[in-house]
Design a protein around this nucleic acid. Sequence first.
DNA 1: TGGCGACATGTCAACATTGGAAGGTAATCT
DNA 2: AGATTACCTTCCAATGTTGACATGTCGCCA
Lengths: 170, 170
Amino acid sequence: MSLRHALLGLLADRTASGYDLLKLFDSSLANVWPATQSQIYAELNKLADGGLIKVVAEGPRGRKQYALTEEGLTELRRWLTETEPQPNVRSEVLLRVFFLGVLSREQSEAYLAGLATRFAEEENALRELERGIEWDESDLSLYGRIALEYGLRFNAMRHEWAEWAAAQVK
Amino acid sequence: MSLRHALLGLLADRTASGYDLLKLFDSSLANVWPATQSQIYAELNKLADGGLIKVVAEGPRGRKQYALTEEGLTELRRWLTETEPQPNVRSEVLLRVFFLGVLSREQSEAYLAGLATRFAEEENALRELERGIEWDESDLSLYGRIALEYGLRFNAMRHEWAEWAAAQVK
DNA sequence: TGGCGACATGTCAACATTGGAAGGTAATCT
DNA sequence: AGATTACCTTCCAATGTTGACATGTCGCCA
């Protein structure tokens, strides 16, 4: 379960409430590890119970500001250095490609061409996103940029692949 | 839920038992849409209840040979042409990269270099896989090759990206 | 003929994930 | 002052996913 480590990672940078974290997930982690509000609040309570994070301040409207504890930081480092990431494996797009045989060649080609367009659009959206972010000299900026570069290269690759695939089908 | 459509897709090619499908998932779909035995057998029963597939023969040891029905094929086509694939979004690798700031620069660089190696190895494993498959002129071969090409390009891209990222950190 | 490995299906508990409902407080705008 | 919007948390039902356990049959070969 990576959600707990995602929360620890965000709290390693700065303290935050569940509500803050929810927005962080929607902005910076939306394309990496999406999470819903129910999941986040539930996990925060578990982490607090387990002593990996703690409430450092209570604000208006029942706001609870969480901070990472020593144990939490240790656990985050342990996760990074001592556990293997499980390869990201499910791809609905690829699954569909597998079964294009049930459509006509024309339909398949159109499908793949549509994918190419979509990927190009996503690449552009990421470039927009990149421009909208104020990068500084922090670690989060450095690694955030590296993650974003991954997204850019990923979409460029998929774009080219889809065009190549459409040509193959033809 | 794509599992049901994965099953429909496999049955579009030929009839098969749950056991056959289980092995197909482990071989051809392992890197695209993994599924466990419990999931497969449960879903087959639901699909049969819903009339999307039907038992066409019973063999020894309680073996049930399933085939796609007209409704099943229609549903598979509908899924392909009329529904949007939800973008493949979770990446544990990328999530980890986001939080490399809690490690030292040396550790981070080593981590990224390790990724580069891993991706290169995966690319080689896919090439092995490619050689081991007997490609014919069927649709499944055509689209299977296209899917495999995706994997090859994907790993090449990740390999280069990880090397670039390691250099950035340095 | 006894045993082993492959074949074949079914069931269950636990956890992950989604989406929504519910309930409330503080700040801001008109 | 009243309405709206943003803030903030908790709970729940439904579904997806994993891994393990249970159960039994058939074919082969030593």
